[in-house]
Write a protein that binds this DNA or RNA. Structure first.
Lengths: 332, 332
DNA sequence: CTGAAAGCGCTAACAT
DNA sequence: ATGTTAGCGCTTTCAG
């Protein structure tokens, strides 16, 4: 019933040549005369031969495949990082396989261990919320110990020695906040965020605070936090209604910006009255053209991560000269 | 420098047992005494052993990995299908690897051929726009000929014989349009869409038209098409401004709904004046709570696709009894 | 209970 | 230009 799979050896038998001749012919080796090469290629195509990549990767000890571990694929930031990585790898003849941790440590450990046990030549990782909050990095360090080429992006930590690709969260937050102050003449800016203690969010908060501090003579600030999106939005709407001095909102992450926009809309405030900025990589959400947001250039982050990884793999040096690349943001 | 990788055979040597004993012990085979089993497990952990999955998959002829090919990961519909598949497979001890075609045929062919050449035990595919438009399905049919278990979802075609998971696009469009007519009392509904001739979009259009036809005594319709999002939006805004009889918009896909919402917002129309509906799987976009959209339940589509695929793999029957599963939508 | 041995399909050094 | 051979790490009969 199932047609017997064609392999190098079945072709060899059928054509009365050796397996190695077939192998070399199909690899277009100049060792083989063009006549037999053509004959073999033709027969291979005809008999629907497709090489067993597993066998070949196994033999060669390399899969030409890179693994990506991300917390969440529905967040446009990660989705675009994915795209950036994919594109670069494709150009370089590498494949990409992805797994999502859903921000759970256990899932992340499992996915990493599966991938690193032979499936991939290297890994690009953004650690889960849980891993970062618990400061649980043993699984990451074990990759390094096992000499698995590794790039960390976005959520990184100083305790891990490897190449990293990040945004300058502090500076970006500072710049965007100052933009509100200088160009939009905001005098009371609310920072909104989900409550959580992720490192990069802390940096963003510091950037915001520093900007406020620089202009403390004329500008005041408030902070609105909530665990859940709808609560956050409710709190913001209340604040906007109750305190008419609020004329700016700084959203610490994707969702905060989105919800701020929606709240303003709902209250029928114009962007003259309340200006919004924040971290937002989803230009679709930027439907108000006067809205200026921080675009982290996720595709560039992906591309750079992939580039660093392939460089590292090529160099063979897996233990020193690690670098941390900062990708510039756009205020768009 | 690089620590010699521990393998079954290094463990065997170190412990003065045979390779097969180690293999069985680590697989918790009852053939091995619990004493040696413990000794071997302990030593394996201590020496940081991680099995070479490539070798094992190669040997066993199965990778316990499923491949997913999607056109685009930044579309929330596909992102959520991804999540649904991932979750189900995880529960069943399978892994998922994903590739995106960017809606290009060439990319899709390449990804499928890589994956199907040993990396995966089965494939879940949503064909690229280009493949559908060119009706180029040879690469898909070659999977079937090669007995690679395959599920198609969302964009499917009758000419391919395999299991499929779809939305009843016609019915969903009809219901949503009737909702506008009956519950929102709309009397002039505009259908907006990117110009393109994808099969599932045609079905949606037919559903819309049928609803209009059913109520043709009292309801009229218009159609606005454009290649690019911003043009589409511009056209819609013009129409809304020029023709005050328009009181409903039906968006044929994710972006159409989004842009309709934005346009209405920009024109400061209330949802009393103009009601919107359409296909939209991104609840974030549904920031107007009175907006009722068609949620295709993408996670469910993913789950069902994965379930059908594993069933098919288990059954071993790769040539008959194919089914097409329709996943119910929600009007939310 | 443990071991010996074959072999999955492919590549690559080493003949010829 | 073509063939021979060894072996990647693992699983799995089959023997002991």
């Amino acid at each position: 019933m199932t047609p017997n799979k064609t392999t190098l050896s079945t072709i060899a038998k059928d054509l009365n040549v050796s397996v190695s001749t077939v192998s070399k012919a199909l690899a277009n080796s100049p060792e083989i005369s063009s006549k037999t090469r053509k004959k073999i290629s033709a027969y291979a195509k005809e008999s629907n031969y497709s090489p067993n990549i597993l066998a070949s990767s196994f033999r060669k000890g390399s899969t030409k495949t890179i693994g990506l571990i991300i917390p969440n694929i529905t967040n446009p930031f990660y989705a675009k990082v994915f795209v950036g990585i994919e594109k670069y790898l494709d150009e370089k003849g590498y494949k990409l396989i992805a797994s999502i941790s859903n921000d759970y440590l256990e899932k992340e450990i499992k996915n990493i261990s599966i991938m690193s046990s032979g499936f991939v030549d290297g890994l690009i990782v953004c650690v889960s919320k849980e891993a970062e909050q618990k400061k649980e990095y043993r699984h990451i360090n074990s990759l390094i110990n096992n000499r698995i080429p590794l790039i960390l992006f976005d959520r990184v930590c100083d305790e891990i020695y490897c190449d990293k690709v990040i945004t300058d969260n502090f500076q970006a937050a500072l710049d965007a906040t100052e933009y509100l102050i200088k160009h939009r003449k905001c005098r009371h800016i609310v920072m909104t965020s989900k409550t959580n203690n992720l490192h990069h969010l802390k940096l963003r908060k510091k950037g915001f605070e520093q900007a406020i501090d620089k202009h403390k003579a004329t500008v005041k600030s408030s902070i609105i936090l909530a665990e859940k999106s709808n609560i956050l939005r409710q709190k913001l709407e209340n604040a906007l209604r109750d305190d008419s001095s609020i004329d700016g909102v700084f959203g610490l992450n994707e969702k905060s910006v989105l919800h701020a926009t929606l709240s303003i809309n709902k209250l029928k405030k114009t962007d003259k009255e309340v200006s919004i900025t924040g971290f937002c990589n989803d230009l679709q959400s930027k439907y108000n053209s006067s809205l200026i947001v921080i675009n982290q250039n996720p595709k560039e982050i992906g591309k750079e991560s992939a580039r660093l990884l392939l460089d590292r793999i090529k160099s063979g040096n897996l233990i020193s000269d690690f670098c941390t690349k900062i990708i510039d943001v756009d205020l768009t």
